[in-house]
Amino acid sequence: MTGDYVSTNKDIWNADAPNWAEFAHRQWTLETPEWGTWNNSEDGINMLPADMAQVDAIELGSGTGYVAYWMLRRGARVTAIDISAEQLATARDLAAQHDADITFIEGNAEETGLPDASFDFVISEYGASIWCKPETWLREAWRLLRPGGRLVFLGNHPLSLICSPLDGSPAQRALHRPYKDMWGADWTEVEYEPTGVCFNLTMAGWMDLFAQIEFAVTRYQEVYAPDHAMGERAAIPADWAKEYPVEQVWHLSKPA
Rank of each mutant, 00 (worst) to 15 (best):
Y179H: 07
R150F: 13
A174P: 00
A229Y: 05
M47L: 15
Q87P: 06
Y192A: 12
R173E: 11
F121G: 01
H157T: 07
S62N: 09
L159I: 13
W240D: 01
W137Q: 03
E110H: 01
L175M: 14
I162K: 10
C198S: 11
K180L: 15
L175G: 03
I162L: 09
E31L: 12
A96I: 11
A117Q: 13
R143I: 11
P33D: 06
A229V: 09
A76P: 01
L151F: 14
E111D: 13
L145V: 14
I236E: 08
E59S: 06
A50Y: 08
A128M: 03
I102K: 06
W183G: 04
G231Q: 04
T202N: 02
Y244W: 09
W187A: 00
I58C: 06
N14R: 02
Q172G: 05
S41I: 07
P49H: 06
V249F: 01
E106Q: 14
T37G: 03
N9R: 03
H98Y: 13
N39V: 08
E22D: 14
T218R: 02
S124T: 03
V223A: 02
D167A: 10
T188G: 01
Q87V: 07
A91D: 05
L252K: 00
K10W: 05
R143P: 04
M203S: 10
K133A: 15
Q248G: 09
P147R: 02
T64Q: 09
L209T: 03
A21S: 11
W250K: 01
R177I: 02
D239M: 06
I162R: 07
R150C: 11
W131M: 07
A141V: 02
E86V: 11
W142G: 00
A216M: 11
H157E: 06
L145P: 12
A234T: 12
